[in-house]
Design a protein around this nucleic acid. Structure first.
Length: 643
DNA sequence: GTTTCGGTTCTTTTT
DNA sequence: GAACCGAAAC
């Protein structure tokens, strides 16, 4: 038996042990949100005797899910194994692999990432002859499509409203979308949004499938509820409709994904959808010193529409956060390095220091300076590990043998060969009849004869990798097939094509290790598409992570905490990001919430840097005022640093 | 007709 | 970097 009364404070205890039904926990930053969720799980399994596989835990990132399950494990031992935990996309994927056939998808449907999606949009543009300079770019189109799915408004409304009086013809946008959808359908492929859309459609069209999951999940727990968008909220509502045991945790102050359709008002309308919901507030902050909280409170007060609440401090007074007015990015980098050296000299652990920024490129000068100073640092990079070219290249082999009709993988593989480009690859695929059966010697011959003579010996090296696999001579192990492909072909390819081939080959070896840990090929392939690099990086780097400082975007720092937080580029034109301020009326409020998230990551010490000048690429200079988020804070709450 | 190569431009946030 | 475009090479 757990003695939760001793472990949790009063407000946490009441929330964690609330009786069955709908439960809303409004938890401000640093008030023990994760703790409450973890003990809720533990309490359900341990005290209430709920079987773990009847609990569904939905979190925003895979990392959060893993962390929570690990912590729950520590609390009650291995009893927690079997809980379904992960992201919405993860859950949808798992369900669709099993029942997607009701919607006409095979169980091995490919998941397309951003890069694949770009390729498909590019083709659609070409076919519709809209690939001119003055039409929308691929990324803009894709984000429009995404908004159409994830927000309440339909794509049509959005497009007509946005391009009402511009040179862009709204119907052109819609026809690209139509073509994009059609092409995905032909590939039997789903993009990230399709996973959610199709899962919901499955629930609506196949009541018996839905019933099965409603029955299975006796308890549903959702983390970061303020960042769920309408589709995700509806998925949860469907699943909870039968048992009604739904426990959601969130903070409207920390809603930073409204550009993906999240609306902080959703969390407040929860009681309307669940009239019997019990509501709990966690307001006692254990994380930060009062000086940091004062700044946080002052900062969020700039959002008049937010549901005001004050963070209550429990810790002793320490010292005021600092603001450093700095000349430019280079001075900022040198200042930060000096500051970190001082902190470490004073006994602060490197792993307790984080540098946060609005956009990845804001940290460029600092990255250089840290390398120069030989100071170990970990960057949660912008590129997802599985989205890098070399990783995708290697994975295409695995995907192709697992799913012979995966056109994108086949083409990617073939286009690695010299004198084979997009055109040739498409032609070969058509000749094959949209399916490449590696064990069929006629098909292999078609490929062989369709490619240029210089490519043939290389293809001959790749072929046995494929046939051995299907012939079960490699034991159907994804790691093994990658190893062979690397040895037979990709090593040479990488050396010839990349100046940093070694690093890329290391990545691939890392991938092999990961593949070996996956139980099935299918699990490996789903992981590839749905895991983010931070999810994987954590595992590999832990041997020296104690000695490394962390560099991260504010978005990726969500839910984490450090003793010292340094914010870069708190300057107008950088943070808030001008684009999001221009884009919508809500833009500024969201940026302010983002700044609030950054501030509340700090436990003891907060340093805000505001450089005044930036050199542009063309040699020009841009001047920046300090960010409005800094000037809004009453001066008495801050102290000047640097000069 | 295709592929490759070299020069140029741009960089918000993520499942 | 890496995406894009136009020109050169196959």
């Amino acid at each position: 038996m757990l003695d939760l009364k001793k472990i949790l404070n009063e407000e946490q205890y009441v929330a964690a042990t609330a009786p069955d039904g709908a439960i809303l926990v409004l938890a401000a930053a640093g008030t023990g949100k994760t703790r409450t969720l973890v003990y809720r799980m533990a309490w359900l399994v341990e005290d209430k005797g709920v079987t773990p596989d009847r609990v569904l835990l939905l979190t925003f990132t895979n990392k959060a899910a893993r962390e929570m399950l690990e912590r729950a494990n520590e609390v009650i031992g291995t009893g927690i194994a079997g809980i379904w935990g992960g992201t919405f996309h993860h859950m949808a994927n798992r369900i669709l692999r099993r029942y997607g056939r009701h919607l006409g998808y095979p169980p091995d449907f490919p998941i397309i990432d951003r890069d694949d999606a770009r390729t498909i949009v590019g083709q659609s543009l070409k076919e519709l002859k809209l690939n001119s300079k003055d039409f929308l770019k691929k990324d803009v189109l894709l984000s429009l499509f995404g908004t159409g799915v994830n927000s309440k408004d339909s794509l049509e409304d959005i497009v007509y409203e946005r391009y009402n009086d511009s040179a862009i013809e709204p119907s052109d946008v819609l026809s690209v979308h139509k073509m994009y959808e059609k092409k995905k359908r032909e590939l039997n492929a789903m993009d990230f949004d399709d996973l959610l859309v199709n899962c919901l459609r499955l629930f609506k069209e196949q009541p018996r499938v839905l019933e099965q999951y409603q029955e299975k999940f006796l308890h549903i727990l959702v983390d970061e509820y303020q960042d769920t968008n309408p589709i995700q909220a509806e998925l949860i509502d469907c699943l909870a409709a039968r048992n009604g045991n739904i426990f959601v945790v969130g903070d409207d102050f920390q809603c930073i994904y409204s550009w993906r359709g999240a609306d902080f008002r959703n969390i407040m309308s929860f009681p309307e959808r669940y009239p019997n919901a019990s509501i709990h507030k966690l307001e006692t902050n254990y994380r930060s010193v009062p000086e940091v909280l004062a700044v946080a409170n002052a900062c969020i007060a700039g959002n008049p529409e937010q549901f005001q609440k004050e963070l209550k401090a429990t810790r002793e007074a320490y010292k005021k956060p600092r603001v450093a007015m700095i000349r430019d990015g280079y001075d900022q980098a040198r200042y930060v390095v000096r500051l970190i050296n001082e902190l470490i000299y004073d006994g602060c652990k490197a792993s307790e220091i984080a540098v946060l920024y609005r956009a990845h490129f804001h940290s460029m000068e600092l990255q250089l300076e840290l390398s120069r100073a030989k100071m170990p640092h970990v960057i949660t990079s912008g590129l997802r590990f599985f989205e890098q070219k070399h990783v995708k290249d290697v994975c295409s082999v695995v995907k192709l043998v697992a799913s012979p009709s995966d056109e994108l993988s086949f083409r990617r593989l073939l286009e690695l060969l010299p004198r084979v480009g997009e055109r040739t690859a498409i032609k070969v695929w058509q000749k094959l009849g949209s399916r490449f059966d590696v064990m069929n010697s006629e098909q292999r011959e078609i490929v062989r004869s369709s490619i240029s003579a210089v490519a043939r010996p290389l293809w001959d090296a790749i072929e046995p990798v494929l046939t051995d696999y299907v012939g079960e001579r490699t034991g159907r192990d994804a790691g093994e097939i990658i190893a062979r492909f690397l040895a037979m072909f990709y090593k040479d390819y990488a050396v010839k094509n990349y100046d940093n081939a070694e690093r890329r080959i290391d990545d691939i070896k890392e991938l092999m290790i990961h593949a070996g840990r996956c139980e099935t090929i299918e699990a490996f392939l789903s992981d590839m598409a749905l895991l983010t690099n931070t999810d994987t990086a954590e595992k590999e780097d832990d041997f020296d992570s104690d000695a490394s400082i962390r560099l991260s975007t504010v978005h990726q720092a969500k839910g984490l905490e450090w003793s010292v937080v340094i914010i870069l580029w708190a300057s107008e034109g950088m943070f808030p990001s001008p684009r999001s301020v221009d884009e919508s009326i809500e833009g500024e409020a969201e940026e302010r919430r983002l700044f609030y998230v950054a501030v509340t990551r700090a436990k003891d010490d907060l340093i805000i840097c505001a450089p005044e000048m930036r050199r542009m690429r063309d040699g020009g200079v841009m001047f920046h005022d300090p960010s409005r988020f800094v000037t809004e804070i009453p001066q008495g709450l801050l102290q000047r640093a640097y000069n």
